[in-house]
Design a protein around this nucleic acid. Sequence first.
DNA 1: TTGTATGCGTTATCAT
DNA 2: ATGATAACGCATACAA
Lengths: 337, 337
Amino acid sequence: MVTLKEIARQCGVSVASVSKAINHMPGVGAQTAQRIRDTARALGYLPNAAAQALKTNRSFNIGVLLEDDDNHGLLHQFFVSVLDGFRVVMEEQGYDLMLMNRTVGKRTISYLEHCRHSNLDGVFVACIDFSDPELLELANANVPLVSIDHTYEGHHSVYSDNVDGVYQAVLYAHERGHRRIAYISGAPAGVTSKRLEGYHKALSELGIAPRADYHVYSRYRDIHRTYAATQQLLALKEPPTCILMPDDYASHGGQLAIQNAGLRVPQDISIIGFDGLEYFKFISPRLSTVAQNATAIGEQAARLLLLAIENRGKDIPGQSVKLPVMFIKGETVAPPN
Amino acid sequence: MVTLKEIARQCGVSVASVSKAINHMPGVGAQTAQRIRDTARALGYLPNAAAQALKTNRSFNIGVLLEDDDNHGLLHQFFVSVLDGFRVVMEEQGYDLMLMNRTVGKRTISYLEHCRHSNLDGVFVACIDFSDPELLELANANVPLVSIDHTYEGHHSVYSDNVDGVYQAVLYAHERGHRRIAYISGAPAGVTSKRLEGYHKALSELGIAPRADYHVYSRYRDIHRTYAATQQLLALKEPPTCILMPDDYASHGGQLAIQNAGLRVPQDISIIGFDGLEYFKFISPRLSTVAQNATAIGEQAARLLLLAIENRGKDIPGQSVKLPVMFIKGETVAPPN
DNA sequence: TTGTATGCGTTATCAT
DNA sequence: ATGATAACGCATACAA
């Protein structure tokens, strides 16, 4: 391994000068600096990240928290898309992303402990259960952090305009003739209440009285529960003609329930998703849905986190960035029969 | 930050003793060791990963290479599923996963350079283009490495039984009455030729003469090219009655081409995918496909990589593990009309 | 059993 | 402008 010492030896200068030259710091002559940099390049010198981290307390590593109930957040396509956008921007700035686990050596540690252990410069949080005490511990510590779909006091966050998304969806259903519009929401959470807000706002503007039996809970990305919730709605004496699903993926459960009830989408029952997952563009009928701009969310999150890192310790107020969504008409909303 | 020194001070012993005690090394009395460990726990001591890495040349970090043409490998559901399995096993052993980028500081570096820079203990490679010179450079260096779907000389690898997968698929199509079975393959690669081998093996056993015009190339996960390839097959004077697609995702392109030709799946044309992506279980008609056990592949890869890491430098021969696939009947193969 | 000392590769302070 | 040196936190060879 080529080290500063090696370069110093070859150039006949001190390690200190080499360090200065390579980092473009003052205190070394222009021509010596150039000579040093040239031989460094010639030798294929690369700084040792561990040594740098040890010395500077900066690792240029970002922790990624993709948590869900099953601890398999990587399988959430929406979050992974967000992560991909996040990653591109972070990489441009020379940061590496580290999937945070909770085992160090043979021991289980908390997220915060992992942060300290690995000298993480910041953390990206996208998950389901934001009330996890470990996340709160992390948020209360002084670690630069950015979260998606949830705001932690004093930290940056970014999320879609959930209110507007569901609002638009309901307006569209109404426009197509629906009056009995039901909402299957995800588990209680910040986004959930925002989406419900959009639902009620639209109903209210349209002069439709909200019905308690038209709002049932499922969970995000939960096909089974959404199946059950849909069944429940279909069993009503006066079933809805259009159902808003927790999200695209969960809508599979709704579709199955509708099919198994001997009904068709959208001729008998219309459905609308949320997320705008890529693959739904290719399956028939194309899902009507509220598309989130996952990539933009990730990119924005990256910029905010970089900001937080640069201003570390300065106690900058956390800012929330809200990104627009786009309603996609698709083919799963038809006039009620 | 709690350091060894701090614990040493509180316990009135030397740093060396603390280190030994915490690492359960001999050379420290049982009771003192216990006392040291107790106060370490009480103080919430955590080793500094950077210092450990610097000292031991072990980072307990694994580099993850998920490359595709667009450099957005995270969006490949199959590979992400493999990665998820990989991650679970690696985490159990206390390893962290790092998404390898190619920018350090303001400079672009090679994968190998990144490995050295970050002191990675090993690398996980799952991607499309295994002939990337940077990957070859990495494989030729002495970095523990495990790859999916491709074998690098001297390294471990794991892959599905691709021959058998396509073989089974063709047998099934034949069983359902198909004689004109076409194959749209992915870009030339190890897996591709294995799958083609299965295709030809089955045809040969069934006494069906392979036709050159029934084999066309597309690329994996490429909907557009697969659309075009399907069109090409449908335009033949004697079009196939069953088409094997490069993979599940690409099959969307095939389906669209078939639809746009005014034909139906599977009544007019049968199709078979490859991979067994989760979401295809929920869309209708359910895709007939060859399911790979992504999780098992990832887990197996992890075990092999751990082996390679433990035997680092010992020049152990690379082993290839082949995992069985499972043909899923689905609903997209019907008797030809 | 315990402690001292050294070095991993870097950065940064302070002489020269 | 340059270099000697300390320190980051830890592991380990060696001395006591």
